[in-house]
């Protein structure tokens, strides 16, 4: 059979960068993401929150722990945009600084969970055998605990504080990622490109992280984004019950807890940190939903 010009061209010549880009699933996902309005709202909103947290020292009108003995529990005004708390501290400044704590803890916690989960899941899925058994049984044990109870026990053992909350979020999150990754690795390790790499003599480590990982990471990214919202909420929740941020930290959950006693008399003490938690989680979830749609080939036209 004779090859047509076009066919031979596509085989013999390397594809142009444009064609390559259009075939790249990451490019397609990015296109999809950028065209989703809700995802973009989430992206812009979260970016604003992160920027305001990073630039809090420039934006905040007052230091976050500066007391004002003569103006406690003042309603929002031009001097204090979100009012003051029971110790006379400016809520707006505290909310900006609080973002640093809440977002940082959520991000670091999820990062620990992802890294831990990816490593363990890879090992379990790729090697199988007793190693798989060992890792997965430990994961099963950890999953048998309710998530929040596991968090509480880890914090109770390590002592309260935001540092321990990060570690607790990471440790408690690892089993979920391990499971997710292991399943994908089990499917992926029988694909031809993996067999091919083996035949050529690529080291197992390189196969895992250079060949398999890029092909299975998309669901992890989606899951991690959605998980970020949950982690911010868990951080605030732990601070709310006094196990997370220690005073005078302006972490949002801790601020919410401090405002609880004054809810009838100074609602702004709870409303603003509450709104910040709400928006942070909303934006993160919008991004997560956008990413999920973007990585889902079935939704692609």
């Amino acid at each position: 059979m004779k090859l047509t010009q076009a066919q031979s061209g596509s085989i013999l010549k390397p594809p142009s960068w444009r064609t390559a880009l259009h075939d790249n699933p990451w490019w397609l996902a990015a296109q999809m993401f950028l065209h989703s309005q809700l995802a973009m709202i989430g992206f812009i909103g979260l970016s604003l929150l992160i920027l305001s947290a990073i630039f809090a020292p420039l934006l905040a009108p007052y230091p976050p722990t500066q007391l004002d003995y003569d103006h406690p529990l003042e309603a929002p005004s031009s001097a204090h945009w979100m009012g003051t708390d029971d110790l006379g501290r400016d809520i707006f400044s505290r909310v900006l600084y609080g973002g640093r704590e809440s977002l940082k803890v959520g991000l670091i916690g999820v990062t620990i969970a992802v890294i831990g989960g990816v490593c363990l899941g890879m090992l379990a899925g790729f090697y199988g055998g007793w190693l798989d058994n060992l890792i997965m049984r430990i994961v099963d044990i950890m999953l048998a605990f309710p998530y929040i109870l596991l968090l509480l026990s880890i914090v109770a053992v390590l002592g309260p504080g935001l540092g321990t909350v990060m570690i607790a979020l990471g440790l408690a999150g690892i089993p979920f990622y391990t499971r997710l990754i292991r399943g994908s690795v089990l499917a992926a390790k029988n694909f031809e490109y993996v067999t091919a790499a083996r035949v050529v003599g690529v080291s197992p480590f390189a196969i895992m992280f250079r060949h398999i990982l890029p092909n299975i990471i998309a669901p992890v990214i989606v899951y991690a984004t959605l998980d970020l919202g949950g982690s911010i909420m868990a951080t605030s929740g732990l601070s709310y019950i006094g196990l997370g941020a220690q005073p005078p930290s302006p972490e949002w959950g801790a601020m919410l807890n401090a405002g609880r006693k004054f809810i009838m008399q100074a609602g702004w003490m709870s409303i603003y940190p509450g709104l910040m938690i709400f928006f942070a989680i909303l934006f993160v979830n919008l991004i997560g939903d956008g990413l999920r749609d973007a990585f889902d080939p079935k939704l692609r036209r």
């Binding site: 722990t65 500066q66 007391l67 029971d86 110790l87 005073p247 005078p248 006693k261």
Partner: peptide
């Protein structure tokens, strides 16, 4: 103890 916690925050400052 909310009073002790708040006193601690004020003393810190």
């Amino acid at each position: 103890d909310p009073n002790a916690m708040k006193t601690a925050e004020v003393l810190k400052e």
